[in-house]
Design a binder for these strands. Structure first.
Lengths: 239, 239
DNA sequence: TCCTCTTTCGTCGAGATGACGATAAGCAGG
DNA sequence: CCTGCTTATCGTCATCTCGACGAAAGAGGA
């Protein structure tokens, strides 16, 4: 903590808040990107974000940026702090410390045209990683992906990618998109319906997936998964 | 990311790097604290930390603070970013954004007298939480504890609390101190010796624990634990 | 009606785990 | 040397979970 204190003793540091906003669209994991209109990295794709305001809390800044870029109702979006990046030179203009937030959102039907939403669009993560992003945003994105993949294992957070009511198959497709591996529908069904507090039946059902009508569920109250969601398929055993 | 750019457009923000340094001493989990010599919170206990320097990377700043406060050889200390705190008013003097790092260290034999090490000392976490810390350091400490407890479950990081060579019982006492729950020595032994890459036998043995001589191990190359270290004792089943 | 599709329920063997018994191998004291 | 104490290490067993897969249920379409 600041012991010696002198307003002139510390350097000028700009603080920004950036976002890794993930969603699952057409069975693929996608990230929200904006095209930079100014130097440096003009024309390159970048994560959305902006300066922290004078009297703004960190989560509030993240929520504000999220609303500006997506117009999403922020009661259906999961938002958590990811990490902070401050390597000198990561922004050629000046010393910038960036607090990165991770957001998981359901596939929004209309790309709501907010203030800055015009230039923002969801890009499949594979494409985003192939096309080098501006600044060190490749790294932020990779860190966000790693966090999201890990969290699906031991939290019921996959439901954050789903609409209010969803089927077990829709939830499974979220896992398959984020992890990039196919899962057995039968074992998956047994697992999630057996997990305490993961799913709450709504009583409704739907045939939007084509075959036999599926039960509709909403998110349960659980915050963690015990035991965790097994990720491997085909890997025999670690022990 | 900074789109509009104007050096005068962002407010003056001080960036500090604070540390939650944990160790296990006398079977209890302890945290490194310093006594504040200046206002605000003069005389209160606080986490060690300081200002980020102009051309210093974040992990480098954390490592520097750690060396200043403990004098620990920093090749035996695990250091990772914990979270960033920037709520307006958390420091009454000015806007401060603090990047907090978590460090796990073995019990150092001599409290090496470094530059600032004089005032720094390890305090059992229970005592630290009972005595309110300066600023919002209670929260940083709680977050650090939560992270540490979680990481022991799915990583071999408990060995970071142990010296170069250690016995299974010493490792078990680390888990018991961090989690605050007793573990069955026989099941624990089976688990850690069976986990791939967790422990590497040295061939030596010791009787420093009193009874039958115990094998000495060093840390293995594994970075994660599959399956994870079971935490519950007494809880029958979650399903 | 028959086929196809997806959901949902069962079965089986292979680990993993919790509880706990049994043995091994040191030391202290008589 | 023998007895008792300590702790380390090995086994056993019932229960739970998981992966692989079979089979029935319930809708729509040819």
């Amino acid at each position: 903590m600041p012991q010696p204190y002198d307003p002139a003793a510390f350097p000028s540091v700009a603080v920004t808040v950036d976002l890794v906003v993930l969603t699952v669209r057409a069975g693929r994991l996608a990230v929200l990107l904006v095209e930079r209109g100014e130097a440096p990295h003009r024309g390159r794709l970048a994560l959305p974000g902006g300066f922290l305001r004078p009297d703004e809390d960190l989560p509030a800044a993240a929520a504000r940026e999220l609303a500006e870029e997506t117009g999403l109702p922020h009661d259906c979006v999961h938002l958590e702090q990811l990490a902070t990046y401050g390597t000198p030179g990561r922004d050629p203009r000046m010393r910038v410390v960036t607090i990165c937030y991770l957001a998981l959102a359901p596939d929004l039907p209309s790309p709501v045209a907010g203030t800055d939403a015009a230039s923002a669009s969801f890009v499949p993560v594979d494409d985003a990683l192939a096309a080098a992003l501006a600044f060190d945003h490749d790294r932020l994105l990779r860190d966000g992906l790693e966090r999201a993949r890990a969290k699906l294992e031991y939290t019921p957070l996959a439901a954050a990618f789903c609409p209010e009511e969803f089927t077990v198959a829709e939830l499974r497709r979220v896992y398959e998109a984020v992890w990039g591996t196919p899962l057995d529908p039968r074992n998956f069904h047994r697992k999630v319906t057996g997990a305490d507090g993961f799913l709450e039946p709504t009583g409704h059902s739907t045939t939007r997936d084509g075959g036999r009508p599926a039960q509709l569920y909403r998110r349960g109250p659980a915050r963690t998964l015990h035991p965790s969601m097994p990720r491997s398929t085909g890997d025999p055993h670690p022990g």
